[in-house]
Design a protein around this nucleic acid. Structure first.
Lengths: 181, 181
DNA sequence: CGATTACCGGACAGCACTGTCCGGTTGTAC
DNA sequence: GTACAACCGGACAGTGCTGTCCGGTAATCG
């Protein structure tokens, strides 16, 4: 077997490896779901298994790193004074690609403090938007909205790409009807 | 190792074994999810692996047998002239125990003709109820309702037993608001 | 009562994934 | 130029599940 031209960059390879792993994980989780073999993520990243496990001791650590970015995006959107609840749903729908993995992650590691932390951040940004959006009925609670978000993510995760747009629109229409004044 | 007192009943053991396997599968799927080891189902049923695979060549065949009963129940309810759409949601919520496995089954075997058949039956019974319930707005489509059902099943599957009631009520309230005239 | 037959249950081989461990390579210090 | 240290990648052992195969057992038939 001929030696690969890919060089080992020795010490202080920088955070490149880590970033490559996260990017590969986002792709693989999106394509093959949360249960995808970690070895396939390492391969996609052009990295050995050792490096993957060195950076992320377990599957959840890797997933948290991936979804941390997604939630950060939502937080930025939520902090915008002009964002309505429906806008938030739209933003979540656009992140739908990875939602299947996100759903499975929460299902598989329901009681882990790391997923709890992500959940807390979601609750917080929902609270922010909900407090601001005057078009939402006063009877609507944060729990109602987080349930709706979970349902939306689920619906998108179980729809093939061609129909995602229609499903997202259908679900959003339902939530508008349910949450409006 | 001492021989177990459990006797081999020889030929023509009747359908007892099959029924025991289905019952065990319902329990195990409910407790451990759709991905539970089939060997654990055989053990629970007090049956060898061989018998399990003889009756059900693969996991899906077993799951279909389990959920066939559930859907038959729903069909009976749907055929009742007095059943409203909200009643249907309530009935589905009561079947919630196995819904996690149901969701996973549809996710894992999306394109199998056997799951397609189950889905068709659900669509049909939704159509029946929808055509009858005068309290539902004319803008509501069968697709809207099936999406809602999937979301409801999902929501219940991701809720621990103590909160299932509250979650079911929350979701049903949302759907009433979205689907009412 | 003995032979036959159908079916049953568990042992086992095959397979895929995880997580660790080690030889190899490159940059750095002296 | 040489020795050192850090880090990398892939090989590999461990583990758990699937699905098959075979010896054993009970009912039936002559």
């Amino acid at each position: 077997m001929a030696r690969e031209p890919k060089a080992n960059r020795g010490p202080s390879a920088g955070p490149d490896n880590r970033r490559a792993i996260i990017a590969a994980a986002r792709d693989v989780f999106g394509e093959s779901g949360f249960a995808a073999p970690l070895s396939s993520i390492a391969k996609r990243a052009g990295v050995g298994q050792g490096s993957l496990y060195r950076h992320f001791p377990d599957r959840l650590a890797l997933a948290v790193a991936v979804f941390d970015d997604n939630i950060a995006d939502l937080e930025a959107i939520a902090s915008d004074e002009l964002t309505t609840l429906d806008d938030l749903f739209a933003a979540i729908a656009e992140q739908a690609m990875g939602s299947s993995a996100l759903i499975d992650m929460f299902a598989t590691h329901q009681d882990d403090p790391r997923t709890d932390h992500l959940q807390t951040r979601i609750v917080e940004l929902v609270r922010t938007v909900l407090a601001r959006d005057a078009a939402v009925g006063p009877h609507v609670t944060v729990d109602d909205v987080t349930l709706a978000i979970a349902m939306l993510a689920f619906a998108l995760s179980r729809t093939d790409a061609s129909a995602k747009g229609a499903t997202a629109e259908r679900a959003r229409a339902m939530f508008r009807a349910a949450f409006g004044r």
